[in-house]
Design a protein around this nucleic acid. Sequence first.
DNA 1: ACAGAATAGAGAATTCTTTCGCTAACTATC
DNA 2: GATAGTTAGCGAAAGAATTCTCTATTCTGT
Lengths: 128, 128
Amino acid sequence: MPRTASSQPTEVELQILRTLWELGPSTVRDVHNRITETKDTKYSTTVKMLSVMLEKGLVKRDDCVRPQVYRTAASQQRTQKRMLTEMIQKVYDGSATSLVLQALSSTRASKQDLAKIRKLLDQLGIDQ
Amino acid sequence: MPRTASSQPTEVELQILRTLWELGPSTVRDVHNRITETKDTKYSTTVKMLSVMLEKGLVKRDDCVRPQVYRTAASQQRTQKRMLTEMIQKVYDGSATSLVLQALSSTRASKQDLAKIRKLLDQLGIDQ
DNA sequence: ACAGAATAGAGAATTCTTTCGCTAACTATC
DNA sequence: GATAGTTAGCGAAAGAATTCTCTATTCTGT
């Protein structure tokens, strides 16, 4: 039975994606070493998760090299954006603005960050 | 075995929380009617989910009235914020700003919304 | 080429989530 | 107070996600 990528990556899948974002294309060993910094799990579990993710199309694998090298199938940006969109739908009832307001008020953003946001805001204001 | 609230509400739990946010304190029947607008499920499933959520502390129940009335244990704001914080940690590596920038650039916010955000931005800028 | 180590994979066990069937308890109405 | 209808709850089944054990394959150093 072919596995299909459900809407969102699961908990462990996300942890692995994050690792790949951080390390770039990596061997199972690389990923596993990173994972076991925060939790205790067997090497073969990491192998299995990666193979499940491969089936789902979340990652790709280069079999030409040994050991095999895994990389994310979609960019970090693209995946983040998809997850964000789903959160906006499911948690904020489709209102990105509510999410932004809450995110802003619950964080201590630096002057630089605030400036960046203002700049984007200006751009958005123009072509409307 | 006492059930414990894992970090995030699950898919169905969130759906029920959303219903309670929308309807306010409700009977199982109310919740179930709302749920079955979008998916087909038995009444007893809704009962069960609510009882699981009660065990986890996600909802509270008023037994003094018949039928019993359920309501969320934490406010919508509080729950949203907790979920948002976790997303910022797990998906944006702790950078609320990245999340805000992506949310803004992927949405078509109205002039009013942009103004609201600008206003909050100004406030944040001041007391820093 | 061989032994020991690392890597890869398959399948089952485990845990968590979601669903349901069945029964008990309660409510209203006649 | 019998009865039909609704509500509440339990325990098991079904479905997903995650983990492991065990085996096969590949690599490395001698």
